[in-house]
């Protein structure tokens, strides 16, 4: 189970990487393993506003569907268009090629309220 130290996490199993005021968001290795084979990822268009811990999309796996929650508030500036043809990247490489959206963050302090790798590890009992 991969839980990179340099990322922050939500209680809903998203990860976020902050680079300046740009947050890159995806779902964790634990989440993809729980979901199993992912067949679609529903993502918002660039420009869409997102809010901290509000739904921004959904992941459709063979056995189940899960909502995606935005870790931070801001506006979507990019979506991973590769996932359209290759949703399985979320399974095979959730922290890199399986990223989902990039958000220009309006409230940087929200980042500090997210779970550290250690806290997330504790949450999932890994």
């Amino acid at each position: 189970m991969l839980i990179p130290d340099d990322l922050r996490y939500t209680t809903e199993h998203e990860w976020v990487r902050l680079d300046g005021d740009i947050a890159t968001v995806g779902i964790t290795d634990y989440a993809q393993e729980q979901l199993g084979d992912i067949v679609f990822v529903e993502l918002p268009a660039a420009g869409t506003p997102v809010e901290s811990m509000r739904i921004f999309g959904a992941v459709e796996a063979v056995k189940t569907v899960a909502d995606l929650f935005s870790p931070v508030t801001g506006a979507v500036i990019a979506v991973n268009e590769q996932l359209e043809a290759h949703p399985e990247y979320v399974n095979t490489d959730p922290y890199e090629t399986g990223w989902m959206i990039k958000i220009r963050v309006t409230t940087a302090s929200e980042f500090d309220g997210l779970l550290t790798a250690q806290a997330y590890q504790k949450l999932i009992g890994a």
Partner: peptide
């Protein structure tokens, strides 16, 4: 067992 390697595979 619901799956081993993965449902699609």
């Amino acid at each position: 067992p619901v799956q081993y390697e993965g449902i699609l595979a």
